[in-house]
Design a protein around this nucleic acid. Structure first.
Lengths: 210, 210, 210, 210
DNA sequence: AATGAATGAGAGTTCATTCAT
DNA sequence: TATGAATGAACTCTCATTCAT
């Protein structure tokens, strides 16, 4: 209603900061547990002034979620199109992307994972689209791995993709909580586990190894 | 304030139902997003009457979390002490326990995972104790697996335990959302992935296989 | 959502008082100019408690308007069906009803006249129905007067009805403001003016008298 | 605070437009229901810029009311002094003035009628003076009609004046709402009703006609 | 002559909690 | 054992107003 100079560079910059502030407090207290006062305080302005940047608390949540997925999905685009790489390298890239995104935008990603369901259907369409695309791309990476023989043919790609996302997110939560985590160590361990499992076996006992 | 017959069997029965009702609405809307009205409605009583069963909303949340962990951790106790079984069988048991708990008490477990952090420190001691114990027991299962040679010696048990929990929880969320999931199929796939990874390799390329 | 004992006699009684309190402050300050605090204060309860009786400020406005029209339209029903009376008597009854309603429920009627347009379309259907019915009934009284020869045949009944309502409402505002008005004197004067006009003429110059 | 060139012709022109914009939105939403944003938008400027033309929202309301009464009362001045005309002609002129004012400045007049009471006493002195003067002038026209024998001697001039104003305002509201009203038809009907009433009688039954 | 940005007060509404009955 | 009624604090959101630029 009130036409703001929504295109001015300065406005966009300040709004970014507002999104980050919102990410911080949503991440700490959850959407319902965080008040607009908290966000404003985190940003160093008064509560009412927040509405210069967001039309509603819900809009703030949506922006935080989008912000969280931004680079994360963009990077997946690159990985998905880079079909020349061997499967191991691509999986490594996937995990690296996921976990480093957590390091850089941990709060926003956590908010996306835990709070996005509180958005009304209408506000979730873009998020849903991005999330589905991500999962489909990950699945295609896995399927490609099956085709080239690097991945066990009996693997359910859909299930595997979900598991990869699940592990990464649970490690991500860890990264959010503890500040001094060696992310690259985590990436290595995680990729190793996903590729070879915990077993010390030489392939025996695997249905597809005969 | 008034002395309640908290020991009477009937009271305990009704309270159980109250806990389940709370689990349902906390699981659907989150702790902050759910109102005591919602819980009362779910239970078929009037709002004020809830306080006959809970001293506060927070107490309700604590009860739900404890309820969620109950059998889940009890079962882990059994698994942990059953050192005679081979590693594969024990891991299978762990995953089965985790995922079937989700099927039976899905809501309470989900609430524990997502909302327990809104409890004040004081109320979380028991939960923390149970959670830590669970993780330590899982770690000991894994370490035992290493000792008996079934698990790769290079594996970081702490990390692995966390990953197992992470995958199971992410699959659990899935079970909560969709009603007709074949849980045992999930268990099989999950254990397989955790044991052998995605790779089709015969153990080559694994640092510890030489 | 919260099922209240909306049928209990006591509740209904208290709610009536709440409606009257709302009528008082809406009448004094207008819908937008009056706060729910004002209403609560007028009623002798705390602001938040008002919501035990109304789901929203808008609902309160709707109730006030309905309350204002209640007896007023009920009486018109009686007048409209009493076709045996001569026109003069029926017009007298109409004006009496309108102005005494103002004396008894002045505030609610004033609110209906001045504030009902701030209700969203959906909330106005019943009011509209009642208002239209009232006007139609008044028109039929006038048309009946034309048929029996008491009213000038050239008169536009729709226009006349509107004028009657207009005069009565403007006099009503007067009744609201000043406490010691002789309503029956007003009724007499008003009916006289409406019947015979201001002119001292003997009917000459009237288009239909030739 | 900053010295404005309030006397410059351009400023006065722009201010007029601001007053008209305010009239439009006050008329549509009421004083309390309309925001300074709405006015600014209607005027095509930004919200803060409004304060270049009005020191406060209240001042804007006052200006709108004065603007609405302007020509309306000026015309009444002319009618009141034109004592040479017969009563019927003067009444006709009064009604014409009232209703055409509504056609031309409908919004401002409506605002005056419905919202002026929200002005603090101090801001209403001029309006009150103008309104009282108008009513007194109308009364004197009626009294003059009585003296010259055109108006029934039993008529209460004060009451009659109020009724004239009441009818005209209620018709005015009608003009505001519906765009295509034949105002002159309304004027004719209205004057007719006021002069001769609804009755078809030839003077019989009138106390003063004997 | 007009705007972007902020403010602070207050609005309507929700809700956990209390307590007499 | 449960309820009706009320409370007060917190919350989201709106808005008139200010002022440096």
């Amino acid at each position: 209603m009130k036409p703001k100079n929504t295109d001015s560079e300065k406005y966009q910059l300040h709004r970014r900061e507002a999104v980050r502030a919102a990410a911080t407090v949503f991440s700490a207290n959850g959407f319902h547990g965080a008040s607009t006062s908290d966000i404003a305080e985190q940003l160093g302005i008064k509560q009412g002034s927040l509405y210069y940047y967001f039309a509603s608390k819900e809009e703030a949540l949506e922006e935080v979620c989008l912000y969280g997925l931004e680079t994360y999905t963009k990077n997946m685009d690159v990985i998905a199109h880079d079909t020349g790489q061997p499967f191991e390298a691509r999986l490594f890239a996937v995990v690296t992307n996921h976990l480093t995104s957590y390091r850089d935008k941990s709060e926003a990603l956590k908010v996306h994972n835990n709070e996005r369901l509180y958005l009304p259907e209408a506000r979730r369409v873009r998020l849903k689209a991005m999330g589905s695309k991500y999962r489909r791309q990950l699945e295609s990476v896995i399927e490609h791995g099956i085709e080239e023989g690097a991945v066990s043919a009996t693997l359910d790609a859909h299930f595997a993709a979900q598991s990869v996302i699940g592990i990464c997110n649970s490690l991500g939560e860890h990264i959010v909580r503890e500040t001094d985590v060696d992310v690259f160590d985590l990436v290595r361990k995680c990729t190793g586990l996903l590729l070879h499992g915990m077993s010390s076996e030489q392939g025996s006992g695997r249905p597809n190894t005969s």
